[in-house]
Design a binder for these strands. Sequence first.
DNA 1: AGTGTCGCCTGAATGC
DNA 2: TGCATTCAGGCGACAC
Length: 292
Amino acid sequence: MVPAPFLWGLGMPELPEVETVMRGMEAALCGSRIARVDVRRKDLRVPFPKGLAKSLEGRVLAQFSRRAKYVLARLDDGQVLVIHLGMSGRVQLVASGEDFTPGKHDHLVVTMADGCAFALNDARRFGVVLLLPGDKVESHASFKTLGPEPLGNAFDAAYLEQKLKGRKTAVKIAIMDQRIVVGVGNIYACEALYQAGIDPRRAAGAVTRAELEKLVTAIRDVLGRAIAAGGSTLRDYKQADGELGYFQHEFKVYGREGEPCPARGCGCKKAGGVQRITQGGRSTFFCPARQR
DNA sequence: AGTGTCGCCTGAATGC
DNA sequence: TGCATTCAGGCGACAC
């Protein structure tokens, strides 16, 4: 039994955080029957599905999975509850018998027949909730354009080389493009490019095959280590308050403007440390000495 | 088709 | 102290 209240996703929900949330929900909720659904406002970024509560009540949460940054919960009637956490979304678990009073941003509260519950909390309401027939998920507008999973076999340097060929857009913008590869948000794009030693401003099509090999390895490594950090916290859920996002302590460049990068004796130290620039309206952090 | 910009949203941090 | 401004960013819409 997971103690309550237990809050997942205190960092910005990128792929590792979404994977951790999904695993946590799976562990606590899979196989449970939904007894009651409280839809506490009409929309997040888009309206909640019509008749959401009626469609969910009485159904069993049969199977959990993740696609890109979406949590997918398959119901026993074949429908799929889709949850996207946007920028500020969290999932709070409430154990059976535990008191829970929904707060200001608890927009959806789902209570199980056994008395446990989960709440979707999203202050900025950039999140999305969908309810789709199981055979319509892949063809839905939010899914049909998605590229391969970064941790899957379809994502490799040969694939990336083909997708980036001739592209003038900055390589950092390109790897954040969900049509090219999913799940790489601003933080992990910065970290992966640092690890691969690639300047985020480079034209995507001008990055060499050898560099793309490094980049693919770096993306997989950074995401994998972040998932492991969340997972280890999850396994040790009795500790502290369940706060995730410990991986933030391993950020090498993200949020570290002006600090020297962690590489010993790096030339960036004398040159003002990690630089912050804006690309596509988002902050990019990089080491001007190690990323070329 | 590729590329760039904007708006959604509100809490936290900063500025005056 | 308090009010105003800026910043954070995933994603879709839109313009060129």
